[in-house]
């Protein structure tokens, strides 16, 4: 095993248009769990399919350690990459039993008899499906099918495991259970894992690293806590957390984390400056907006009861919107005063 290197990878399809992936460079450390996060159509699945070998890059290269997997002129076919993948549709073969599905990669590798049975049994017990070995995939629930697909990945000890939105077709309750299974699977196999998702909560909960993509480009790679605390640029800021982005005059110096006094001064200079100063994008997360006796005046645009709290959309005097939470109900059109405890300059 070794680290997986994507070297200024690009992919354009014959149909034309902008490239699906554009100059993407990324290194996934050995045994890492990388989440590729982005809105649908951002090229993340194309990256995954290039790593698997289903698509050939039009530029750049993919290396696993020293070994060149693919570049624009040559590539190792998927059957020789020792990778495994969990598909969004699970891709279980309907004409084979659960045990046959899981044992197929071993069968292809010429492992048979006692040894194969033992490995299949181990893999199935790792996903707690030992008693389902003789069932047909059609008889299983969605979560169980997903676990069979996972067991099939486990069975050959692959170098890299790819997961293509594996939770997209599951209900919320099953998702949490499967997230747990994925974490266990990662800890146990030690394989490098790449997980494609458009759900930031999923990415944060599972991965050791999160890579954010948009329109075929890589925007930022960092650990989940870091990417949440200090997102880079408007796109990442908008994608991570439910924050609102304000356009305010550039604060002095290169401070990025702004406290209330700093925000207060920005909000007040804005009213004087009339937009001649350089403008900065400031990310304000709803949990940092506190309703207080004094502060900046806002009016309530909408109120949504979410069960544990109310989610508010608030408008500043110049019409820019903020999001906030409230424990008590407020009315649309009310005027409140809020304090912004913390904000992040993008």
């Amino acid at each position: 095993m070794a680290k997986l290197i994507l070297n200024s990878l690009s992919k354009s399809f014959e149909t034309g248009g902008r490239p699906a992936v554009n100059g993407l460079s990324l290194t996934v450390r050995e045994g890492g769990f990388l989440a590729l996060l982005g809105p649908s159509g951002c090229g993340k699945t194309t990256v995954l399919r290039m790593i698997a070998g289903f698509e050939q890059p039009t530029e750049g290269s993919i290396l696993l350690g020293e070994r060149l997997l693919a570049d624009a002129s040559e590539m190792v076919p998927p059957e020789h990459r020792n990778m495994a993948m969990v598909f969004q549709s699970y891709a279980l073969w309907p004409h084979m039993s659960v045990a046959e599905n899981v044992g197929y990669p071993l069968k292809v590798r010429g492992i048979s008899g006692e040894k194969r049975q033992r490995k299949v049994k181990d893999a199935l017990s790792a996903v707690r499906l030992e008693s389902y070995a003789d069932r047909q995939p059609a008889d299983l629930s969605g979560g169980q099918r997903q676990r069979v697909a996972l067991a099939r990945c486990l069975v050959t000890e692959p170098d890299v495991v790819l997961l293509d939105e594996p939770l997209a077709n599951l209900d919320r309750h099953l998702r949490q259970e499967m997230e747990e299974t994925f974490r266990e699977f990662h800890a146990r196999s030690g394989a490098t894992m790449i997980y494609v998702t458009h759900d930031q909560a999923e990415a944060m909960a599972l991965a050791t690293d999160v890579a954010v993509m948009s329109e075929g480009r890589l925007l930022q790679v960092a650990a989940p806590e870091e990417i949440y605390a200090s997102p880079d640029g408007r796109l990442v800021g908008g994608l991570i957390g439910q924050g609102a982005i304000l356009s305010l005059p550039s604060p002095d110096g290169d401070r990025r984390l702004l406290d209330w006094p700093a925000m207060q001064s920005l909000l007040s200079t804005r009213e004087i400056g009339q937009g001649n100063d350089p403008v900065a994008d400031i990310l304000v997360r709803p949990q940092d907006v506190e309703i207080a006796a004094e502060g900046v005046a806002v009016s309530v645009l909408s109120v949504l009861f979410e069960g544990e709290r109310y989610a508010l959309r608030l408008a500043l005097a110049d019409g820019q919107t903020l999001r906030a939470f409230s424990r008590r109900s407020v009315k649309v059109g009310d005027t409140l005063t809020v304090i912004i405890r913390s904000a992040w300059r993008l």
């Binding site: 698997a52 070998g53 289903f54 076919p77 998927p78 059957e79 020789h80 990459r81 020792n82 990778m83 495994a84 993948m85 598909f87 969004q88 549709s89 891709a91 279980l92 073969w93 197929y104 990669p105 292809v108 590798r109 697909a149 099939r152 050959t156």
Partner: peptide, 23 residues
């Protein structure tokens, strides 16, 4: 046929003849 059924077999290491016969 869902293309991923064949792709899963490719990642399992099956060459074309094998995929044809088994999947």
């Amino acid at each position: 046929l869902d293309p991923s059924l064949e792709e899963a077999a490719r990642l399992s290491g099956a060459r074309f003849g094998r995929r044809l016969a088994d999947i």
